[in-house]
């Protein structure tokens, strides 16, 4: 089958970019979206042109490296799906597919579809960890965790840090990412000592990095490949508010 794609091409961080249309033959419906881009890049290289730069790693939906805006939807039309797990059968060959990088001030474009998402690492550094005594591993059942807490923590821990929430948010907010980390650590006993300072510091960090504020539009959770729920954001807000009142 023949597909048409309109891909954002930008030679470098400060270079001007534009959408360039390509026609790609020999794409099968069973190819993944990234395989379609691979086919395009082989053609471009054979023609002596620069291939389209895009981030990818595991190609099995668990690493968080891939992720582009496809027809204006982060990770494309698949529900709870990363770009690498999306298949060409989801697209109508009659319509050109618009492919753009994540757009947010804290995510500067490096080249073509690749953005620098290290701002999310800065948010993690500000509180997305627990401080614990190193040494012999504790007994498996030394620290009981209620089943519901374990489930809530696990659901939040599924976040792969792909940045789709930021890309989809009309405010360019990283709240769903930050809330996933604060929930993952904040409901477990190991995360309790730093729970409130973690919430405060991570929100402060994302504010300082230039992310927008959350207005609970729900765009983030609609595109999240791991289905992190909006209730995580309410939980983060509660911890930030508790922190402010505790140290008042």
């Amino acid at each position: 089958m023949k597909y048409r794609v309109r891909v954002w091409r930008q030679a470098g961080p400060t270079a001007p970019g534009r959408l360039v249309e390509y026609e790609i033959d020999d794409v099968t419906a069973d190819m993944s979206f990234l395989e379609m881009l691979d086919v395009l890049n082989e053609r471009l290289q054979l023609a002596g042109e620069d291939p389209v730069a895009f981030d990818h790693d595991c190609r099995e939906g668990i690493c968080g490296a891939c992720g582009v805006m496809i027809d204006g939807v982060a990770h494309g039309p698949g529900k709870a799906t990363t770009t690498c797990q999306l298949h060409m059968r989801q697209f109508d060959p009659a319509d050109p597919i618009v492919v753009e990088p994540w757009r947010a001030a804290p995510f500067p474009v490096v080249r073509d579809l690749v953005v620098d998402r290290s701002a999310l690492d800065r948010v993690i550094e500000s509180g997305g960890y627990i401080s614990t005594r190193a040494g012999a591993a504790p007994d498996a059942h030394a620290l009981p965790v209620p089943k519901l807490d374990a489930d809530t923590a696990f659901e939040a821990a599924a976040c792969i840090g792909c940045g789709a929430c930021v890309a989809a948010c009309p405010n360019g907010s990283s709240m769903l990412f930050t809330a996933a980390k604060a929930t993952h650590l904040g409901v477990l006993p190991q995360g309790q000592p730093e729970r409130y300072t973690r919430a405060r510091n991570m929100v402060e960090a994302q504010d300082d990095l230039g992310f927008g504020g959350c207005t609970l539009t729900g765009e983030c959770t609609a595109v999240c490949p791991k289905g992190i729920p909006l209730t995580a954001i309410a939980r983060l807000n509660r911890d930030v508010l508790s922190d402010a009142m505790r140290s008042a």
Partner: peptide, 28 residues
């Protein structure tokens, strides 16, 4: 907060359909 949001996305998307947010959320 609106100004912060505008600063957080200086370059918009060429194609951007409405996905999730209801009419009420979008028109706040």
């Amino acid at each position: 907060l609106a100004r912060r949001a505008a600063r957080a996305r200086p370059v918009g998307y060429a194609r951007r359909p409405k996905v999730q947010g209801g009419y009420a959320a979008r028109t706040m």
